[in-house]
Design a binder for these strands. Structure first.
Lengths: 100, 100
DNA sequence: TACGTATATAAGCGCAAGCGTATACAGCGT
DNA sequence: ACGCTGTATACGCTTGCGCTTATATACGTA
């Protein structure tokens, strides 16, 4: 699975937002998603790991998950060339409004 | 389907990159993807339409597709709060290298 | 060693995505 | 009107995702 499919899943975006606040153990993340079972969350974490979006380090029997800095950057790199589309569009819109 | 799932598909990202160069008719897009049949491309275009990533206008019996300015911006809006992660990480790395 | 806790993996299921073939629909030219 | 071209939709099929239950693995503690 690639990083685009990884973030296409709402639950995984939720996990990313939780890890953006601070590191959390797998158990804390499971508790944050009461609609899902522990194995379901564990599988999502595995996908986030394998796509390089998060990293794990052991702490005794727990696993501490953290957002990886360069994971989402790959999406940002992809979107960058297209950014001019809405920037130019906004500029044209502002110009239009100015001329009213 | 939401915009994240829409761009998670490699074929649809390819279509987006083609439309970023210039507008194209549905037929031109079909010809640009020889691995796929015409209905397959047409369905991808429908998804891009429904998620607001492209717009269409008729030209006789042809349909001219164009990239929509504010479509990808929704992904950019989502990624923006996380941008500080790799920016801060890069800053910390530079600082570290400076101190060597 | 034995048991409890924390996390990951296995197995099986339902569902939706993506594909191709076949077909419908719309506009063009004769 | 008729056939031809361009595009979209219907249908059936296969495949892979995400889920749950059950189980394995690893660490902590008495």
């Amino acid at each position: 699975m690639d990083v685009f499919e990884a973030v296409a899943e709402p639950t995984r975006r939720h996990l990313i937002s939780l890890l953006a606040e601070r590191e959390r153990t797998a158990g804390e993340l499971v508790d944050s998603l009461p609609a899902l079972t522990q194995p379901a969350v564990s599988r999502h974490l595995r996908i986030l790991r394998e796509t390089g979006l998060v990293e794990v380090r052991p702490d005794g029997q727990r696993r501490i998950y953290a957002l990886k800095p360069d994971g989402l950057q790959r999406i940002d790199d992809w979107i960058t060339p297209y950014r001019r589309f809405w920037r130019d569009h906004l500029a044209a819109l502002e110009q239009h409004l100015e001329n009213q």
